[in-house]
Design a protein around this nucleic acid. Structure first.
Ligand SMILES: [Mn+2]
Ligand SMILES: [Mn+2]
Ligand SMILES: [Zn+2]
Ligand SMILES: [Zn+2]
Lengths: 141, 141
DNA sequence: ACTGGTTTTTAGATTATGTCTAATGTGAGA
DNA sequence: TCTCACATTAGACATAATCTAAAAACCAGT
């Protein structure tokens, strides 16, 4: 995704394209590692312009609200973030907490009977287990 | 689920049946509201015996590790817990964060190609949107 | 360029949630 | 009943995230 595309995605959501906000989005787009807010904060501050901690959190929240970024909550750990590019599922490692992308495939939705008057926005499929790094030493902990 | 059944489930997991641990499990079994740790702590302390905050957290962790309780992480809010009885999916409300049970149905697993050397333990299907209480006033916030 | 209003950034305090420590207590098998 | 590995406790501590209030950046209209 090029700079102009980021610009346009911000425009489409009514978000100003500030250097700090741009840096967060650009970082997420060029690293599909699902970083935490703290990691993003550190990364965007390795280069100018500097951004404060509060701004990093603010921008992540705005980008999530705008639907450009996804937040992944993980039990007992800091939330992780990724840019919403192509659809995919997530694998979360029981041991190290890492989040990895899994090739997307269609998920059957629940029958309307079981949803009642609820308004469904999205289905999220999460796989859990041990990642490639943790699977070998599976006995520990 | 009767007291003896709780006893037996503890025995099967090598967990002692202490009053505090029993109270946590019993509370989860008779309320399918997905309470937070703080709510559980408060609830079990409305009746004797008293339990400390640390113990409530310890027991919840032990019960999750033993596979008797499930922990549901929610972005920006405290984790919620439920007793693992019959299989079901979860609906999480975007607005109020409430977690509700959805009738279970089978979920197709990913092809082995997309999992690589990862060890799959479980698939979790989460629905997001607005709950029955929040759907009407959907415009706000 | 100036003005006024809006959005954004900022440092630091504050809250919320959960974990750890070290001393004390106890369930359940021998 | 004795015993000890397991469990509980109060309170300190850690971590993640939000809030606050003031300053800065930005934008549209003149
Ligand atoms: Mn991802
Ligand atoms: Mn449930
Ligand atoms: Zn791992
Ligand atoms: Zn709701």
């Amino acid at each position: 995704m090029n700079p102009e595309a980021i610009q346009r995605s911000f425009d489409g959501s009514g978000l100003r394209c500030t250097p700090q906000r741009y840096a967060v989005m650009a970082f997420l787009l060029e690293h599909n590692r699902h970083p935490t807010a703290a990691e993003i904060f550190e990364a965007v501050n390795r280069v100018d312009p500097r951004s404060s901690r509060a701004t990093t959190y603010n921008n992540l929240r705005d980008l999530v609200k705008a639907g450009l970024v996804r937040e992944v909550a993980i039990e007992g750990r800091a939330a992780r973030f990724d840019a919403k590019g192509m659809q995919h599922h997530h694998f979360i490692c029981d041991r190290c907490g890492n989040v990895e992308d899994i090739k997307w495939y269609d998920v059957p939705r629940p029958g309307p009977g079981s949803l009642g008057k609820r308004v469904l926005r999205e289905c999220e499929l999460i796989f859990r287990g041990l990642c490639t790094k943790c699977a070998p030493r599976r006995a520990s902990r």
